[in-house]
Simulated assay, not measured.
Amino acid sequence: MRSPITNTATRYGWAMIILHWLIGIIFIGQFALGFVMMRIESQRTAFELIQLHKSFGFLLLGLIILRIAWRLGNRAPALPPSVGTLERKAAPLAHFALYAFQVALPLSGWALVSVSTLEIPTMPFNLFVMPNLPLSESDAAESFWSAAHWYLAYAGIALVALHIAAALRHHFLLRDTVLTRMITPSSARE
């Protein structure tokens, strides 16, 4: 039997699994790319990495919006009985925070390039020119959005690290299905 695309009562379907891992990889990769591009000496290489970072930022924004829409239409599987009351209450808040940071971070980057006085066009993957947000250009605004983007990036990566630690705790210490249900898709039988 083939696995369905949608979630079941006990497991995630293919759509959520693929979106979860793709967004996670891009989010962590974006953090690493942002870290490197701000410390590289070659201006040409830095410029190319910044353009790549912006491209993946827009891709990430689109994927997270798709994931939120999919999540709204597909109920998450129930947590296993081993999950305690406090963790049951904290899990939705933690997921909401992850979603919020994954939306806010690329939006803050988009705001940053929109207010830049350099007026360098953004061309995601060299396919088209992405219009700027309707914000006023100024050095002060650029400084604000640059700081906001930086703080959001570090807070977001800290949340991702906590998310990974929690998943590993469930898998190795509690030995429940919290992690495996995001790896092995639901089946048509469930």
Rank of each mutant, 00 (worst) to 15 (best):
G29W: 04
H53D: 05
L135N: 06
R75L: 15
L159R: 03
P4K: 05
I164N: 04
R2A: 06
F125G: 09
F172M: 03
I23F: 12
I68R: 03
A100C: 12
L179Y: 04
P131N: 12
A90S: 05
R189E: 09
P121R: 03
S42W: 08
P185F: 02
G84Y: 08
R39Q: 05
I23V: 13
A100L: 15
Q30N: 13
P80Q: 14
W150G: 05
A69N: 14
A167T: 10
S138I: 12
L63A: 00
N132D: 12
R75S: 13
G109W: 08
F27C: 02
F96I: 15
H163W: 07
Y12H: 01
V36W: 15
I50D: 15
E87R: 14
L61H: 00
F144S: 00
A97S: 02
A94M: 12
H171C: 01
Q51W: 09
E137A: 14
E190S: 09
L127E: 10
F35S: 11
H149K: 04
V178F: 08
L93G: 07
W21M: 08
P4W: 05
A91G: 06
Y151I: 01
T180Y: 07
W150S: 02
W21A: 08
Q102V: 11
I50M: 13
S108T: 07
R189S: 09
F58S: 02
S143T: 12
I68P: 09
M1G: 08
R2I: 13
A78T: 08
F144I: 00
V113Q: 06
A76D: 11
R67N: 10
L59N: 03
T45V: 10
Q30F: 14
A15N: 03
Y151S: 02
T177S: 15
F125M: 08
A155Y: 02
A9T: 07
E142M: 11
E119T: 13
R11W: 07
P185K: 01
L63Y: 04
D176M: 06
P121E: 01
E137K: 15
W70D: 04
P121N: 08
A32P: 11
L162F: 14
T10I: 06
R67W: 10
P185M: 01
S116F: 13
L152W: 05
F47G: 12
G13R: 02
A91C: 13
F27K: 01
F125T: 13
R39K: 01
I164F: 09
A153M: 02
H170R: 06
W150H: 13
L127K: 10
L98I: 12
H170G: 03
G34Q: 04
I65A: 07
F31W: 15
Q30H: 12
F31R: 02
F56Q: 07
P124I: 11
M130I: 06
F35L: 12
